[in-house]
Amino acid sequence: MPKAKPEISPDAQEAPAPSSRLVYRQALSTRVTHWLWAVSLFFLLMSGLQIFNAHPALYLGHQSGFEFDNTVLRIGVEEAATGPVGYTELLGFRVETTGFLGLSGGSGAQQARAFSSWATIPSGQDLASGRVVHFFFAWLLCFTLLIWLLTSVASGHLKRDILPRRTDLAALGADMADHLRLRFHRGRSYGPLQKLSYALVLLVLLPLMILTGLAMSPGMNAAVPFLADMFGGRQTARTLHFLGMALILLFFIVHILMVALAGPFNEMRSMITGWYRAEDVRASKRKGESQ
């Protein structure tokens, strides 16, 4: 067992702490679901932006205001004296976003599209294919989340590792300060901020994405009309679906940044093999006391 012999870390940049050991941190179910989510969310994001491009405006309420204004976000292109200009209008504030949103591509091949071709699947404007990709991975995400939820409740993973406890919440401030100083605790279990962010994504954001997605389905609207009403109407559900996407994207960026800062080799190893080099907190504490 790796626990028995002090292994020399293959990544030279991470000099082993005076007392660190490899621990089996990620169960197989955690690792498999993690990578299925990663793949699903990647395809859902980019096919979702493809779908958004078919009508790049978001509204509040049951319907889209064509003769009245209930728009909260609009990405488009307009003719200016100097030629076409891409713009993004959020809650009435308009900014020029040529090259990024609304209008993109080289000067020879400018395209009037909300999100540029590099951000969508497929890269060209193709709503039909975007929908086919989106719903396939939506099903995969639902299945994965359901299986994870059931196994995590059964194994105690949810209660033990994900749901923040009272002590976690009490330690939240100190954990934030440590993160800001790029000082990471490599324990066997997740830190307070980790728990909180994983719980928010898995138990709040992803279910919200599934529910707001279903609230847009005319079939589901007949079966469960209160779903769309609960969110304030189908168009509000669509807006929330977009907002949820932005929050998951934000989580992804921070998540990748944290992996890289906390030691990408160790973090990736634990999410692939399950084994993680953890600091022996008690041992280092004792050592600190004796000095």
Binding site: F52, A54, H55, H62, F66, P218, R234, Q235
Partner: peptide, 10 residues
């Protein structure tokens, strides 16, 4: 409510 595949409703 008429829901278009493009995303809008009326």
């Amino acid at each position: 409510r008429h829901d278009c595949v493009e995303g809008w409703s009326c």
